[in-house]
Simulated scan of single mutants.
Amino acid sequence: MINVLFAARPERWDTYEQPLRNALNAAGIEANLSQDISPEDVDYIVYAPNSDLQDFTPYTRARAVLNLWAGVEQITGNQTLTIPLARMVDPGLTKGMVEWVTGHVMRYHLGMDAHIVNPSNSWTVTTPPLAEERRVVILGLGALGTACAETLLGLGFQVTGWSRSAKSVEGVNCLHGDAGLALALAEAEILVTLLPDTASTTNIMNAETLAQMPHGAFLINPGRGPLIEDTALLAALDTGQIAHATLDVFRTEPLPQNDPYWAHPQVTVTPHIAAETRASTASQVIVENIRRGEAGEPFLNLVDRALGY
């Protein structure tokens, strides 16, 4: 029997205990799943970075840390963590992100705000372009960015994707590197930021890069709060360089009540709801990695500590 430690906030245990047990049983894995196991006896750690476990030194037998979150920026710098770390790539989370991003892209593409909320009560008729005439750019072509790009491509949009290293997605104009970023931003009528939070992506959307976008462009950020230099975005919104921004993630969460984003008329704030890990599907991902560890197979979704994701 293997020992699987659940190391997350206590309230998450009620959400994950039964789905994890169901997934373990379905995989035929006999396991002791618990929140309380002596460190020297632990084989796998199911982990959330905001848990009390921050020192991995006593876990001398553990084979892998299996993250419950897609984001790993809070753990990659932990010097006591030397065993494999797998990030969460949850099909349920991906589907949720695709639906949220697609919904807000369509909202901007169709100009729905002007039709749904019209304080002047005027009968204003506007005809949006067809999807094939609208250019959407996605920064980040990982699992989430690629899934969003493919869905938007299927709806007929002109889709460009940018990543730091070269990627290839059929039908998507894929760019990379500094020169590629400038080219991507120049055609970003609607920009979706889905990059990880790393030293090289912090404030990637700043005064210079925001100015490279078409005047009156729209920005959607369901990725990470630090991707955006907040003062620069607010200034771009004030001048109309950015027509409107929908923000789901922030440097401080929950977003403080006195934050200027709340009151800005050209900003939509959503409470980090774009993509939530689903316990049922995430548990299957976790257990598949446990199965792989026991079978001597490579773990899925391993984190490159040097890259930070």
Rank of each mutant, 00 (worst) to 15 (best):
N3Y: 14
L5K: 01
P10L: 03
N25T: 15
Q35T: 12
D36C: 08
D36S: 15
S38C: 13
Q54I: 01
F56Y: 14
P58M: 10
T60M: 05
A62M: 04
V65C: 04
V65I: 09
L66S: 08
W69K: 01
G96H: 11
V98S: 10
T102N: 13
R107P: 00
L110I: 03
G111R: 00
D113R: 00
S122N: 13
P128Q: 09
E133N: 15
R134V: 06
V137Q: 06
I138W: 01
G142Q: 09
G145D: 07
G145Y: 09
T146H: 03
E150A: 02
L152M: 12
V172T: 05
V172P: 01
C174L: 04
H176Y: 11
A179L: 12
L181N: 14
A182F: 01
L185H: 09
E189A: 06
L194W: 13
L195Y: 03
L195K: 00
P196W: 02
T198A: 09
A207K: 02
L210T: 13
P214H: 12
P222S: 11
P226E: 09
L227C: 10
I228L: 12
D230C: 02
A235I: 09
D248H: 11
V249T: 15
E253F: 06
A263Y: 02
P265L: 12
V267L: 05
T270H: 05
P271V: 12
I273K: 08
T277G: 13
R278S: 07
I286S: 09
N289G: 04
I290E: 05
R292F: 07
G296S: 14
F299L: 14
D304L: 06
D304W: 00
